[in-house]
Design a protein around this nucleic acid. Sequence first.
DNA 1: CGGGACATTGAACCTAGTCAACGTCGGTGG
DNA 2: CCACCGACGTTGACTAGGTTCAATGTCCCG
Lengths: 348, 348
Amino acid sequence: MKKKVLIIEDNDDIRENVIEILELAGYTVASTNNGKAGVELAFQDTPDIILCDIMMPELDGYGVLYLLSKRPETIAVPFIFLTAKAEHFDRRKGMEMGADDYLTKPFDDMELLAAIESRLKKKEGQQAFYSKSLDKLNMLVAKKDGLAALKKIIEERKSRTIKKNQVIYYEGDKGNGLYLLISGKVKTIKLAEDGRELMTGIYAADDYLGINAMLSNEAYADTATALEDSLLCLIPKEQLEELLNLYPEVAREFIKLLANDIREKEDQLLQMAYNSVRKKMAEALLRLQRQSNADNFKITREDLAAMAAMATETVSRTLSDFKAEGLIEKTGSTITILDLARLTKMKN
Amino acid sequence: MKKKVLIIEDNDDIRENVIEILELAGYTVASTNNGKAGVELAFQDTPDIILCDIMMPELDGYGVLYLLSKRPETIAVPFIFLTAKAEHFDRRKGMEMGADDYLTKPFDDMELLAAIESRLKKKEGQQAFYSKSLDKLNMLVAKKDGLAALKKIIEERKSRTIKKNQVIYYEGDKGNGLYLLISGKVKTIKLAEDGRELMTGIYAADDYLGINAMLSNEAYADTATALEDSLLCLIPKEQLEELLNLYPEVAREFIKLLANDIREKEDQLLQMAYNSVRKKMAEALLRLQRQSNADNFKITREDLAAMAAMATETVSRTLSDFKAEGLIEKTGSTITILDLARLTKMKN
DNA sequence: CGGGACATTGAACCTAGTCAACGTCGGTGG
DNA sequence: CCACCGACGTTGACTAGGTTCAATGTCCCG
């Protein structure tokens, strides 16, 4: 089956040229010269890949990407930016927003075709990759007889790669689905009035993201950011609703997840309230150890400070103390836990 | 229909004497001379009221009361202590554990009969009282067609009066049902290692208590204590499970409650972490105002301290400041909010 | 190998906790 | 009905722990 490519580019020469090349290469091509029309075309008939200029009047490339990422049907479509600007900052901004690649104009035919093919191939690779995470989801649904629903969900797997430091959703965004983290690591944070961050959660492979926003039908209460390159699977809201209504087991499972979450939050509250800095630090390290299942991990002082609700300087000092006491080892931003037992028993 | 009375009393003379009186008065009487047997009798054939001695070998009266409160079928049965000790401390301990009355030996026939009748009458009164709370539950269940289930639950309404400062459940207890608070006010707290309390929640009429323990099938993560005399309705675990499996709407409703709970806990976490004492105090007062729907309320400095995670002395000081600034009024343990707007906008 | 981001260390400051003494309220018993 | 007691609330003085500001050191990426 022919792959559909959507091109959004306001320069007529370039657009026509690209269309010609792609049609020769056997793709079906849709095109437009402005961002708004591009978004609408994408919604009407989901393409397999999108090429998009950054600098455009009215709605620019970043805006297009943002709007597309709001809808489940377009969120997973590979997105390649076309631009004359090869500057560092723009490139990063685009990648952080979730673009998959970047072509600097002028580009030759081979470059273009190679980029498209590599993206399409990668996307297919991901479909196969889905790992245990989704199998677990299958289990969950299949427990009783949700076979049809199960098939449907898996067939329509939407996936999305997220790069380090990229924001998955912002506090206040209305969610469009539930995320299942397939690989990587993600943190959720809340911002205090003065700009300080508090980490409300840290997630690893097989964890669900945004459960409570999704299930309470409200906007996200925190901001989710990738701590490292991650792969996410989106379960669209409507399908989730359907599952919940059809299969009590699914609802029970989510209820359990939520209830445990509350438990954890309450524990954290107690710690935050009355524990000394040493104790809070120890607990933060233990949480990291538990969820990475390893005795060493990389984390910035800033993130640690946000986890334990203290100043970065205090983190530094406390870690130095811990090192002097033989509890941990540290080099740069890598921390290795040496004496788990004593950390666990840390007195207040 | 004849009412069943169970008597647990190790002194043979007194027991025989009471049995005689009660049978003359038209009650069906079961009796035993030790606590263990008493508990078993109560489980086998739920009595309408229980009279129980405190001082007994093996299992004393407090133990009996505790064991009975663990089972849904006996939790709501009126319980009267019989004892020679008229001392203040014992009386309070008994009442705090949930005893409904106290008879000091020696007591005469009239005293005994009056106590029993008053208890039975009160219990019946409660059945009628149930107020809007349960009607709301009905709504919830009836939304679709859960008529049968609905009827069943309402028929088997278990109710229980809880006196001020009485503990409803302890952290670590395995729950046997979900509580619906019909009237009164309840707090849930967690204890830090050093004994300081942190209030994790405060509940008013129509709120559910212990949702997350119940739904995650684990022990309670906090201790629930009545802030004033309260009336609770117990929805036994099994019925809850049934409802959840039969009616997705019910599950959805609870999911929403849980999700909102998480939201609140996260907000609290952020406050606890970075806010000044003044701000924390203001937030605590606002929370009290919101949930009592009144501008004045009675609360001890200790409870306030547990809510805002600070020392009672600091609470005193901060309240004094607030009063001087015209934000609140206070006399004894009653606080009146004067300037809601400024409290809300309290800067950090 | 240079620059910027990240980490460490020192010193000053300040908030809120602790300890202690005193005041106030409400309930109980004489 | 009043006096007393214990629980609860207030205020002051002192102190410890953590934040802030500032300077310096170290790592990593291009």
